[in-house]
């Protein structure tokens, strides 16, 4: 278990600054999610932690020592690739055992550890198979077992769930979180899926164009976004923005209700023209405009709303966020 500190980390590929001055401290045993759209630098940042790329600036500190020039094998890390990267010519057992074999551990000890890791992930019955003979979900478990078998200080995961189909993904997410808590390994997890990030992370670092835009608990990120990028990237549908009194006013679709239903004595009111209603079962989405700006409301399907009508809507004052019109930076007030 370890503390990972990234201090002013940068990485350029030619003219492109993939990672641009990132400062993050990951606490012992913490599950940190790097969230961002593709090209935001999150995978590069993880590869820097792994030692697969060398930083152009800044330093990476694991457990108090700078590891910038330490090769991956000596960093005490393990990584799960998006493609799982199982060794095709080795059985599942030998795949999981590989990091231990390289260390030169004795056979009985290896067997014990492999069986522990395989048991933890419920793949004990697959040990004699070749990687080509197991399913996608099982491959992912093999890759995680291989990562855990060495008891790494830091576990890195690069979108490990993105190759699974939607059904398996949900249960895999749940299990991932469970065993991460169980063994308490410091984990850095890369994803572009904000639901995954919200569900898994103790904290989330939202990245965009090589910079960390905000780092905080899922609750913070969702309810107190640092800027318009974070507000727009996290949440489906994203936050609504309306220009009001020289500022950008932001509010979540699910907090945007007909004015008469708001308990707040003095909500922020808008005239909402509803153009289209989508009933999605658990909730319905009303698409419309305030003035000429497009806005979405997430409403209870029981609410009677007609397409084409214009109604008084509002947001409780405490649920409204303000942003600078030019920079998009959040303003607290």
């Amino acid at each position: 278990m370890a503390i990972v500190e990234l201090k002013g980390i940068s990485k350029s590929f030619g003219q492109v600054r993939a990672v641009d001055g990132v400062d993050v401290e990951i606490k012992d045993g913490e599950f940190l999610v790097l969230l961002g759209p593709s090209g935001s630098g999150k995978t590069t940042l993880m590869r820097l932690c792994a030692g697969l790329e060398r930083p152009t600036g800044g330093s990476i500190v694991i457990d108090g020592s700078v590891v910038n020039d330490v090769p991956p094998r000596e960093r005490g890390i393990a990584m799960v690739f998006q493609s799982y990267a199982l060794y095709p010519h080795k059985t599942v057992f030998r795949n999981i055992a590989f990091p231990l074999t390289v260390e030169g551990m004795d056979k009985a000890e290896i067997r014990k550890k492999v069986e522990w890791a395989a048991g933890l992930l419920g793949i004990g019955h697959l040990l004699d198979r070749m990687p080509s003979q197991v399913s996608g979900g099982e491959k992912q478990r093999v890759a995680i077992a291989r990562a855990l078998v060495r008891r790494p200080k830091v576990l890195l995961m690069d979108e490990p769930l993105s190759n699974l189909d939607a059904k398996v993904r949900h249960s895999a997410r749940d299990e991932l979180k469970k065993f991460q808590r169980e063994i308490g390994v410091t984990t850095i997890y890369v994803t572009h899926d904000q639901a995954e990030a919200m569900g898994l992370g103790d904290r989330i670092a939202v990245m965009h164009e090589g910079k960390v835009r905000q780092i905080g608990t899922p609750d913070d990120i969702y309810h107190y976004p640092a800027d318009t990028f974070v507000a727009g990237f996290v949440g489906t549908p994203p936050m609504n923005f309306i220009e009001k009194d020289g500022l950008l006013t932001g509010f979540r679709p699910e907090l945007f209700h007909p004015a008469e239903l708001i308990s707040d004595q003095d909500p922020v009111r808008f005239r909402f023209r509803i153009e289209r209603v989508e009933n999605l079962g658990a909730y319905s989405l009303a698409y419309g405009t305030i003035g000429s700006v497009k806005v979405i409301a997430n409403l209870s399907p029981r609410l009677r709303i007609r397409e084409g009508e214009e109604r008084d809507f509002g947001v409780s004052r405490q649920d409204v966020r303000y942003f600078d019109k030019q920079t998009g930076a959040g303003i607290r007030r």
């Binding site: 792994a50 030692g51 697969l52 090769p71 991956p72 094998r73 890390i77 393990a78 990584m79 690739f81 493609s83 990267a85 199982l86 060794y87 095709p88 590989f98 990091p99 390289v102 260390e103 291989r146 060495r150």
Partner: peptide
């Protein structure tokens, strides 16, 4: 795949 090689680097090679 390059990842297989990188995996080996991480796994201690």
């Amino acid at each position: 795949p390059r990842e297989i090689e990188e995996q080996a680097l991480i796994d201690g090679c």
